[in-house]
Nucleic acid binder design. Structure first.
Length: 643
RNA sequence: GCUGGCGUAGCUCAAUGGCAGAGCAGCGGUUUUGUAAACCGCAGGUUGGAGGUUCAAUUCCUCUCGCCAGCUCCA
């Protein structure tokens, strides 16, 4: 058989040689960094025998596939350790995650931190034993018998769900045998640095009616340095947590007395929010939206017409009775915008119509899902509804895409991931409509040269959608923006417009949100910047500090000058040393610190210190204003919506 | 909603059945200060809430509210 190393030379080998041997024969030095191999594009164990011509390629930790193999073997080692330390624990499933892995065990009690220490010690020992990992294939019957004999009821249940006549693979390392598709590392000694992270409860097969299993999370890396870097990143995520930073910077609180998931915006947080909202409104008006307002409650009948009572009830606050009819706190803005549309007879000439609103909605979220600002019960959507003719969908969506990227970039997000979700199994609307809408969305993405992932069947029941995920400074993705075509509401509310032909037609409706929820977006912004907002969003842009009481008057004059120029500046005239004032301003993440002592008063300047200690030298008040002005305009991208 | 952990001063955290404590912040004073913490003093509490066990509960038990980590959910 002819074996070719991808991008390298070929060798003719006898059948039955292992993949590892083949890689070597092709001239590759196979060290412990080679974890597995791709044979004709499929990742397999190095110990797999080859039987026919193939292109082979080493898999290392630097690829997603390599990391998966590495973490998967790591979780097997952890499972082996748990079985050795706690023989009564039953194994269930244990997959690799992006940066880590977990394994779920059926055990009579939760694992304690002391248990984890014991398990981790045993893991190190198993790594040291350097047990070879071997694969064997069993028939379904053999597999069931084998795992039954070992008392692994969950494995048996899994196998029973497998197809009848396909062989089932199991991997063993020493005494430990696990049902597993593989592939795996050649031996346990290939794992370098290992750490158990946390424990958690998790339902068997993710179903809350099933027994609760004990999940252990862990991670592993080839070197201690890589593990340390990962742990440092986790620390950084903790440091930037918007709940912590929000409290430290006095931006927002969520208080028990007010209620869970309900946010109080303190003056500084409210100011940042105001700046976000002002920007949002200005840009929407520029981009051809009509801004509207709608009330927080409406008759329950409206929500019956919209279908929310039928399909969304469990996420709605209970209705309240008033004057013999029921009213509902709004979970969505769309019905109101629809009613504004319906308040006139519309002509095809009026379309598209774009109604935008920073609309506050209330949703009853189950207590367990609430999470700081990222998941709340009362929040403001940057919502808009576009009503257009079917032939306008693509242009409208292209326009929204341009606008979305413009807005997101303005807030400092530059990495995006785009998903196009198509028709799910349960859906409303004719085939024609779905095809037209889906083609229009795809056409819009293509017209802008935007790469996207296809999420087949991931659309809403009422229409296809485009979701945009942003990546923050720590590389985490967040879904904020969504553009959804809706065939359902125009139908339910019997929307119409008079076409060129003088007949009545149904408009297409598009829901879209750019930031999603202001609360959530604000939380993400706080974490993205670690509280150090860019100057245009900073609640306090500059603090002018007096060294001694001698400069009080001078400082006040400078502050007045900055304020007159439209900047947010405070004076710090307290009886404190300059080091203390600097420290406080640094902790408050103020972008500019302007120090005035006798020298500055003499020369009519300020000693300018940037956030995080940058010494920007001495400048006049006018020069400081230029500096701030530059900084503020630089943060707003030169780019404009391109349509 | 489920599993586990947690809840003490404005904040961060001590005290494990026996008088509730520290640092920071706050207030008063001293100090007039040069780029991330000057010094002295004062005040600050229904230990999340309700009930129970006990001579005695922050500590043990029950219920409840909230938070945290997950699970589930997110038409």
């Amino acid at each position: 058989m002819k074996i070719t190393l991808k991008g390298g030379n070929s060798q003719v080998l006898e059948k039955g040689q292992t993949v590892g041997a083949a890689l070597k024969a092709c001239g590759l030095s196979v060290g412990s960094d080679v974890l597995a191999a791709k044979v004709n594009g499929v990742v397999v164990d190095l110990s797999r025998p080859l039987t026919e011509d193939a292109v082979v390629e080493p898999v290392r930790f630097d690829s997603a596939e390599g990391r998966e193999v590495y973490r998967h073997s790591s979780t097997h080692i952890m499972a082996q350790a748990v079985k050795e330390v706690f023989p009564t624990a039953q194994v269930t499933i244990g997959p690799a995650l992006e940066d880590s892995f977990f394994y779920d065990f059926a055990f009579e009690r939760p694992f304690t931190p002391e248990d984890l220490e014991k398990i981790e010690a045993r893991v190190r020992e198993i790594i040291k034993r350097n047990l070879p990992v071997t694969r064997k294939e069993l028939s379904k019957q053999e597999a069931i018998q084998f795992f039954q004999s070992r008392g692994e009821a969950y494995k048996v249940e899994l196998i029973q769900g497998f197809p009848e006549h396909e062989p089932i693979s199991a991997y063993s390392q020493g005494e430990f045998v696990d049902l597993c598709r593989g592939p795996h590392l050649p031996a346990t000694g290939h794992v370098g640095a290992f750490k158990l992270l946390t424990t958690a409860g998790a339902y068997w097969r993710g179903d809350e009616r099933n027994p609760m299993l004990q999940r252990i999370y862990g991670t592993s890396f080839p070197t201690q340095a890589e593990l340390d870097a990962y742990l440092a990143r986790l620390e950084e995520i903790k440091r930037r947590d918007h709940r912590k930073v929000g409290k430290e910077l006095d931006l927002i609180t969520i208080q028990d007395e007010i209620g869970p998931g309900l946010v109080l915006w303190h003056p500084k947080g409210a100011l940042v929010r105001l700046l976000i909202e002002n920007f949002w409104r200005e840009q929407h008006i520029k981009d051809g939206y009509d801004l509207v307002y709608s009330p927080h409650i409406a008759r329950l009948d409206l929500w019956k017409t919209s279908g929310h009572v039928d399909y969304y009830r469990e996420n709605m606050f209970a209705p309240m009775k008033l004057e013999g009819s029921e009213y509902q706190l709004k979970p969505m803005n769309c019905p109101y915008h629809i009613m504004i549309y319906k308040s006139h007879l519309r002509s095809y000439r009026d379309l598209p119509i774009r109604y935008g609103e920073l609309g506050t909605v209330y949703r009853y979220e189950r207590t367990g899902v609430l999470h700081g600002l990222l998941r709340v019960r009362g929040f403001t959507q940057d919502d808009a509804h576009l009503f257009c003719r079917p032939d306008q969908i693509q242009d409208e969506v292209s326009r929204v895409l341009d606008f979305t990227f413009f807005v997101l970039k303005s807030f400092g997000f530059v990495d995006f991931e785009i998903f196009l979700s198509t028709r799910p199994e349960k859906s409303v609307g004719s085939d024609d409509k779905w095809v037209l809408a889906t083609d229009s969305l795809e056409g819009a993405l293509k017209s802008r040269g935007i790469a996207f992932h296809l999420d087949e069947g991931g659309g809403a029941f009422y229409g296809p959608k485009i979701d945009i995920k942003i990546k923050d400074a720590l590389g985490r993705s967040w879904q904020c923006s969504t553009i959804q075509v809706d065939f359902n509401n125009p139908e339910r509310f019997e929307l119409s417009y008079i076409g060129e032909d003088g007949k009545s037609h149904q408009p297409i409706m598009i829901h879209r949100a750019l930031m999603g929820s202001i609360e959530r977006f604000f939380g993400i912004l706080v974490e993205h910047y670690g509280g150090a907002f860019p100057t245009w969003l900073a609640p306090v842009q500059a603090v002018v500090m007096a060294i001694t009481d001698n400069q009080r008057e001078y400082v006040n004059t400078v502050v007045a000058q900055l304020k007159a120029a439209g900047f947010r500046a405070d004076a710090d005239l307290r009886n404190e040393k300059i080091g203390f004032k600097i420290r406080e301003a640094e902790k408050a993440k103020v972008p500019y610190m302007l120090v005035a002592g006798d020298r500055e008063v003499q020369s009519g300047t300020l000693s300018v210190r940037g956030r995080s200690g940058a010494n920007l030298g001495n400048m006049t008040g006018a020069a400081v204003i230029d500096l701030l002005r530059n900084d503020v305009t630089r943060a707003q991208p030169e780019l404009q919506p391109t349509h």
